[in-house]
Simulated assay, not measured.
Amino acid sequence: MNCRLNPRGWDRRASQAPHRVVSFLVIAACAVGAAGSPAPAEGSAVATATVAASQDKRSRTVVRDPGSQAWVEVVPPEPGTPEGDLHTAREHLLVGSSVAAVKAVDRWIREYGTSHALYPDALLLKSQAWIAAHKFDEAHDLLTRFLNEFDGTSYVTEALRQEFVIAEAYLGGARRKFLGMRLMPGDDVGLRILDDMTANFPNDAHAELAIKTKADYFLRRGESALAELEYARLLNEYPQSRYHAYALRRAADCAQAVFVGPEYDEAPLIEAQSRFEEYARRYPQQAAEEGVPGIFVAIREARAEKLVKTAEYYERARHPKTAVFYYQLAVQDWPGTQADAKARRRLDVLGVAVTAPDAADEASGGR
């Protein structure tokens, strides 16, 4: 049995009615026939699909009529018509003949022109064929022109979906052509596609996904600072995003990763603590399951250790009053930490009682 399935699920005629597509029945019929199983009972849904698919070489679509709840066959459009010729191009793409699909679309455009109502569908089919052939440069160029020409129409979401596929391919390692060969990395183009989505189509669902994808890309590359900026951007620009919990946790993780040690600025740790606190407040169960309370302990220890390291530096530099100030600050601000115990031991060695820092010493730097 030679069964094929319409790649779009239904053709333009079928899309005029609110039917639910069940083209998978055609696939089921193909599987039954290929396995040599007995023919299904006449009148069954699978039988309907089997008979329909065997009548000619064109693919068939079966839908359920919401009124009668019966399976209804939607006959493909006749070849030689705009709908039929475009359907033929789709079938080329379905069977993996991407180049044949592109040629069929080009013939369609020459035959029916750019003013035909199906012209946007033809262009999107052509770009889809380029993507299937891994010719991302050609597809991206076509979609860029398409979005400029058909901005504000119902076709934008599908065009953005295809652009997103191209961006992911480039960020995943696909290369661009140079001197006819695929030699150049495509990361810059992938990032530019994502930026264009958020800048030009902020209300489309792909916009917030583009920011998330860009942040994930930087995170995979170990560029935590850039990743944090993108996750924070997603939180700020799309506060009701379906990715809110994910972005908030990743932003906190990235901020913590930016902190490289107690000898450096603790601003990333403060940012991380703030984001983890918000995460625990908004998603308490997830936070508990993911061990966020333990992260709070680690952040406290790191911030306290920074004060002790600072005190040790001033002690080595022979500025004992400043060293005492930071040791006392560690005791006062971070009780119960390992740094607290270390600071108390050093204060004891220096013969200084544990007290609150003197305001005058704090103002003068303790020197």
Rank of each mutant, 00 (worst) to 15 (best):
F296P: 02
V260H: 02
L179T: 04
L226V: 06
E237R: 11
P76V: 12
L142W: 00
Y327E: 08
E83N: 02
A34S: 12
A251Y: 01
T114P: 00
A122E: 06
C254K: 01
L329M: 11
S54V: 12
N2R: 14
V258C: 03
D333H: 03
N203W: 07
E230A: 04
A311R: 02
W130T: 05
D137M: 09
E168P: 00
G180K: 09
A17E: 15
A287T: 09
F201S: 05
C254R: 01
P293F: 09
G336M: 12
A343Q: 07
A132R: 12
W10F: 09
P320C: 10
A101N: 05
A205P: 04
L235N: 04
V51N: 04
A122P: 03
P66F: 08
D358H: 04
Y112R: 01
S59T: 13
F24W: 13
A317S: 14
E266H: 01
K342D: 09
P284Q: 09
D196L: 10
G261A: 07
L118R: 06
D137Y: 06
V331A: 03
V51E: 14
G186Q: 09
A339P: 04
L5E: 14
Y326Q: 07
A210N: 03
L219C: 01
D253Y: 08
P185I: 12
A199G: 01
A70H: 06
H244G: 02
R233E: 05
L125H: 02
S68H: 07
G33Y: 10
L124Y: 04
L171N: 02
Y314M: 10
A104L: 10
A101Y: 06
R282G: 03
P202Y: 06
R300S: 10
T337M: 02
A104P: 02
A205L: 13
R4L: 14
G366V: 13
P335E: 11
V63I: 10
S241P: 01
Y170L: 07
P66Q: 12
D56P: 03
K212W: 05
Q286G: 05
R282K: 14
D188I: 12
A39R: 15
L350A: 12
P320G: 06
A34R: 15
G33C: 14
R275Y: 09
D216A: 05
E111M: 03
L171F: 06
R192W: 07
A363L: 15
T88K: 03
V189F: 02
R8S: 08
F178M: 14
P7K: 10
P77L: 13
A304H: 03
T157S: 15
T198V: 15
A330W: 04
S115N: 11
V95E: 13
V72F: 00
E168Q: 13
P335L: 13
A356L: 14
G351T: 11
V46C: 05
G365W: 10
R250N: 03
L93C: 01
T198R: 05
